[in-house]
Write a protein that binds this DNA or RNA. Sequence first.
RNA 1: GGGCGAUUAGCUCAGCUGGUUCAGAGCACCUGCCUUACAAGCAGGGGGUCACUAGUUCGAAUCUAGUAUCGCCCACCA
Length: 883
Amino acid sequence: MEIPAKYDPSLTEDKWYKYWMDNGFFHSEPDNREPYTIVIPPPNVTGVLHMGHMLNNTIQDVLVRRARMQGKNACWVPGTDHASIATEAKVVAKLRDEGIDKNKLAREEFLEHAWEWKEKHGGIILEQLKKLGASCDWERTKFTMDEDMSKSVIKVFVDLYKKGLIYRGVRMVNWDPQAMTAVSDEEVNYKEVQSKLYYVRYQVEGEEEYVTIATTRPETILGDTAVCVHPEDERLKHLHGKKVIVPLVKRPVSIIQDDYVDREFGTGALKITPAHDINDYEIGDKHNLESIDIFNDDGTLNESAQLYIGEDRFKARKLIVKDLEGAGHIVKIEDYINKVGYSERTDAVIEPKLSMQWFLKMEDLTKPALENVMNDNVQFHPSKFKNTYKHWMENVKDWCVSRQLWWGHRIPAYYLPEGGYVVAETEEEAILLAKEKSGNQNITIADLRQDEDVLDTWFSSWLWPISVFDGINNPDNKDYNYYYPTNDLVTAPEILFFWVARMIIAGYEYKEEKPFRNVYLTGIVRDGLGRKMSKSLGNSPDPLELIKNYGADGVRVGMLLCSPAGGDLLFDIKENSKTGENTYPLSEQGRNFGNKIWNAFRLVKSWHVDGTIEQPESAKQAIEWFKHRLNSEIESINDLYEKFRLSDALMAVYKLFWDEFSSWYLELVKPAYQKPIDQASYEETLSFFDIMVKLLHPFMPFITEELWQLMENRKDGESLMIEKMPESEPYNDEIINAFESVKEIISGVRNIRNENNIAQKETLSLKIKGDYERKYDSIIIKMANLSDIRTIDTKIEGAVTFMVKSAEFYIELGDLVDVEEELKKLKEELEYNRGFLNSVMKKLSNERFVNNAPEKVVNVEKKKKEDAEAKIKVLEERIASLT
RNA sequence: GGGCGAUUAGCUCAGCUGGUUCAGAGCACCUGCCUUACAAGCAGGGGGUCACUAGUUCGAAUCUAGUAUCGCCCACCA
């Protein structure tokens, strides 16, 4: 069979993915094996795959595939998140394109559109993950608004309410007056803008004295309910206890004292508008101030403002400045640069607005979650994130869980006609509770008004590791008790608090157990300029296009090679100067590696076995060496996996295959062109190949499966992905080290060929002077293309040399040798060694070193001294012989 | 403004509790090769005062303090 010289991923990837699926290899059911579980960080249901997902899910797949091959019952639960804000925004935008205004729709109508959108776009991202090779248990695919998932969310809300941990309270939200909705902190962009700082004087009640305040928002004066000064500000102490008159509306308000005030800023007096500034609100709350909301939802002034009613807030600002000036209240106006929040979606200036929200008390809930991270019951990789986590957990604020949106889990609170509310899992229960609460036995569901808000998306995500196994509704079920706690969570550090911390909290609250043992935090995928890859910048390659061009294996390897835990992935893009097309050096490296493996296989496959020929000594020794080398590498790879150093683990396999296996081992056992190979060498090589392919499989699932299937006639239902991962066997470092010297000698000869323009084909003779055990002569002869190796003890003329350890190696070149050049080289080396010896001697003659350093260290220095002296002697002799 | 972390080759990073795996790897770069597995390759090579300054020590890339630059998270001063 003819195998092409270039590996074509498009011929294999879909084929094997289908094969794995058809055979149910991804699916897991509880059994008596040790479970290994990962729950996917659920991507936005209407999202499309980006480079961050690619990296994140590749890491998960590597972990899952390895665990599966280690004989564990591996289960990777996939799913999507309803992502209320993002999805609702997309649906609103889509409706707007169709000329439909969300605000004119009934809730139910809007939700119909939203579900339609979800059905159409939902799950695209999961299909894309299959292209990457993700070995998720697709039969377990979950969506955060599935019926049982939603039920869990509501149940938990009610439960926490009953525990007294959920309460209602007023809070400042970011109000977008254009979209007429609250937006989250993440959706507010702060920009520095050139604005004005207005100094306005307020008259002290009953006196001819004035207090001047500074503000950037003079229109909010209409909502002022106090003026605040620092209690220890001497300049203003005489005002304590007095009142001032708010200009224009002529409302008398108190002068209060609070050390929140910065004495250095402005005049040291601060106007307080509790309804329109978060800090003012907090001060107002502390001092029991009245709160006057002067704005309508669309940003125009309402009747409470008394003036400029119906005018837009910015128009009102101009008007009031004019009127204040007219009334002599403006002291001065300064240019001022401040930060203003803009809505990410509409670019409208955000208005802080007070509203009634639902909160979860966090203080007690965080305790076990903090403790179990600090004591490493839950381990972070890299561990530096423990600090950040601790800082957050110790300063945690109550969690505002309500959102003024429709897409999501509606808050199960029902308001009674006569006031008050009940919280219940179902409408039936709500009616019962309402009857009980009101004493009115005729209440029906029509009389109850359910809260309009939905829950924060994280309020469902934080249950994810529990709810995907239905652990809230059905805590005794088999899946939950088998798969939970999960093993590893792979996610981005940005959501350490939003998500990871809260999952840990929920885990201890609902199962009294951690949700996962390890948290692997990935970095951010950036472009060559270090910018985060994002849709808006347009600097991200299309992942599917990448997979098409380089193969999933190639893309996976490229990403993984340089993204240690917690480190960013710089995904460089280069433009091909000829075609103008973008190329991706990392993916190229991955693809090239695939091709290397492919061609190594082609070589092995091309061999003809002849059972009658004897095994060459060089092959025998190569096999022995590689066995030890392989086992030592497996050991360190396992160690790297343990430490979650996946990039290093991959690099180790990469080098093992490319440098050790291909460049040394295969070259050594490879028979001469069209000559057969002996039975033993062939079989050993195949078994090495088998082990290599297994080590590679978690990183490169497709090509390894393809090759494993081509190695022998496999039965239907056999697959590399369910084979046993090789384990490390004892090995001998001495053999490995001895072989390193062999490599050095061969390199030495090759180097001489290079420097003297001697073709590889030309056979040379090598002479050795000094202490060297000639165990591997046949290997050296083969690899360096030598006619023979001889030991000598006399000077040699017309030769070039190199040293390995303290032995000197000669290649006779006769007239070809440039004596001057050779002398120069030798003298340089001599110089270096003398300097080195000098530094060693300095150390050894330092009494304090000899007395204080451990004996081991001193002995090492003594050995250095001896070696250097021996080398110097050899070099001196050699130089003498040439001059 | 508060907190955390980083700074080692052109790029991405290893270097664990100070001492031969201490200056490393991969990529990129340079030189020579289309040598019948692979030019997506082979062989060889050049690159670093380990950000700076002081200190601790017999000995510092490694520990301490300060300086500079950068990054991230949190809070956002009227």
